[in-house]
Design a protein around this nucleic acid. Structure first.
Length: 298
DNA sequence: TTCCAGGTGCATA
DNA sequence: TATGCACATGGA
């Protein structure tokens, strides 16, 4: 286990399962894909811009877990290598079908947006697992990122399938099989009830139907889940359903627009920003969020 | 010790 | 529809 993994409390490797890990590593089918380095894809920016919680830094790259799959990203001099047994899944996950050159080019029409875009030009909007994204962002409400990560890792370690060398994110069925007290014991605090109640509903949900809904109708479905308000719903719409016509407004985005719009309610500000940025709202939001948070945390 | 965090639910007006 | 408060927890 590397230092960064220890610091994050991420259980990618466990000493007790080290032997099993070695065996499984040998058995595991070695697959990978790679890409030339590009201005419009930066693994660090993509992972550290706040849209995802299950990753950690390793030597020359990152390790990412999504649902029950994992990928190692290695940054070499001229290219980026993705080591994973799930090539197709992670090509979609990192949104490599979208042409970010065009998106970034369009952003140059607005000098305010262009500045943020240049700062976070390497960000890709991930296409994450729906169940994992819903639970993760319910946990994220009124919470610090290190604590969000810690709660998620405890859930995975205690409830997720043991994949040999990491634990999968728990399924909705697994989550629904536990009690509210279990989620309190995981450190979820007052969100324990939200996780339990939402798990029961997600067990019965057909996401293939949700995928076909218009953004507004899909948001209404998400808002019926306990612990999901406008902001969490918009994060799920953007990071799991690839709906870029949403603008999640949180404390950081409020700070960004405070001078221009004053202390406007989040929902009102979100609607106003979607009217302004349309289909590019999601990208603009991530650039602005990443820039504001990065500069203030320096 | 106090503040605050990628907010939400609920009661009240 | 808008406003205000309570809600767990732990790092800074």
């Amino acid at each position: 286990m590397c230092c960064a993994e220890k610091e994050l409390g991420i259980y990618f490797f466990e000493l007790s399962t080290a032997k099993k890990f070695n065996t499984n590593e040998k058995k595991r089918k070695k697959m990978s894909f790679e890409m030339q380095k590009s201005d419009t894809f930066d693994p660090r920016q993509t992972l550290e811009c706040g849209q995802v919680f299950r990753f950690c830094e390793i030597e020359n790259g990152f390790r990412v877990i999504s649902a029950n799959k994992q990928c190692k990203i290695l940054e070499l001099a001229d290219r980026i290598v993705f080591e994973t047994a799930h090539d197709d899944y992670f090509k979609k996950y990192f949104d490599f079908d979208t042409n970010y050159d065009i998106i970034c080019k369009n952003a140059k029409e607005d000098s305010f947006v262009e500045c943020a875009m240049q700062f976070g030009k390497g960000i890709h909007i991930l296409k994450q697992d729906i169940v994992e994204t819903i639970f993760s962002f319910i946990i994220s409400a009124n919470n610090h990122i290190p604590r969000i990560k810690a709660i998620i890792e405890r859930l995975a370690f205690n409830l997720g399938e043991d994949m040999g060398y990491f634990h999968a994110f728990p399924t909705a069925e697994k989550m629904a099989s536990k009690s509210v007290q279990f989620f309190k014991d995981m450190g979820a605090g007052y969100r324990a009830d939200y996780l339990f109640e939402t798990a029961k509903i997600l067990c019965e949900t057909d996401f293939s139907v949700w995928n076909k809904l218009e953004t507004e109708d899909l948001r209404k479905k998400l808002l019926q889940l306990k612990g999901v308000g406008r902001k969490v719903a918009d994060c799920v719409l953007l990071f799991a359903f690839s709906r870029t016509d949403v603008f999640p407004v949180d404390t950081w985005i409020k700070k960004v627009f405070k001078d221009e719009y004053g202390d406007m309610p989040a929902e009102k500000l979100s609607k106003l920003l979607v009217e302004k940025f349309g289909k590019n709202s999601g990208y603009v939001q991530q650039w602005l969020f990443f820039q504001k948070r990065s500069l203030e945390n320096k």
